[in-house]
Amino acid sequence: MQINVVLNGKTITEEIAPDLLLIDFVRNHKCYSVKRGCETSNCGLCTVFLDQKPVLSCGILAARADGHAVDTLEGLLEEAKEFAMFIADQGAEQCGFCNPGMIMNAIALFRENKEPSDEEIREYLAGNLCRCSGYEGQLRGIRAFLEYKKQGGALCVQ
């Protein structure tokens, strides 16, 4: 079947197998930030935006994206990098494998809620598993980033 997808701002028209998952579609298009961690929609590593809303691409058929916009971390690099360096300043990226999914979902959170509480952060990101960091460093990084944004980005980024 043929689908039309706007992937990271670029329109793609392609013949696909009906059972192709969205995660495999975007990885076939070299969006390697999108990782597969579990196959059962439990880990959050494969988070992408479908029409600006975070979804788990391992649980969605590529066909469902027909006529829609899909964004991966590759398409959000500038926004992601600004935030990511606050995670780096905590050393909380560790193995890194879960980070793109977490960053996608964190960006979605920041867009929805400019000043989330710790509890709101934990709840919003609860579906993004990380086995290395114990989450505390990620929370510290998120708090530092939000503080930086609140100050108008005025803090010195190391």
Partner: peptide, 17 residues
């Protein structure tokens, strides 16, 4: 507390795995 040398590549989803 030096940043990890690979931090930026890992955090921006570079193809490194």
């Amino acid at each position: 507390p030096v940043r990890k040398k690979d931090a930026e590549a890992l955090l921006t989803g570079q193809p490194v795995y």
